[in-house]
Amino acid sequence: MKLKVKLYGTLSQQSPGYQHSQGVEVEIPDGGTVKDLLAHLEIAEKQGALVVIDGQILKADDTMRDGVHIHILQSLSGG
């Protein structure tokens, strides 16, 4: 399935040529989970990634549907 992904924080640093206004299209096998998506994008656990669809933060084993718009954010603490 194809997913439209926007990367936030410093997550785009490892995707050369990434343009924030465009985002990036990612293809992973049908039934892929959040964990699969992060692995595909080579985002490590210590980077604190959060996968968000329609304002909901997903859990690592949640699956995604073809064509959805995904925001991948970074967890931060406040100040």
Partner: peptide
């Protein structure tokens, strides 16, 4: 890279 303004995206994402 982004300063504390990095929080704008996640806090909006959380509504």
């Amino acid at each position: 890279e982004l300063g504390t303004a990095a929080l704008v995206a996640p806090v909006n994402a959380m509504g």
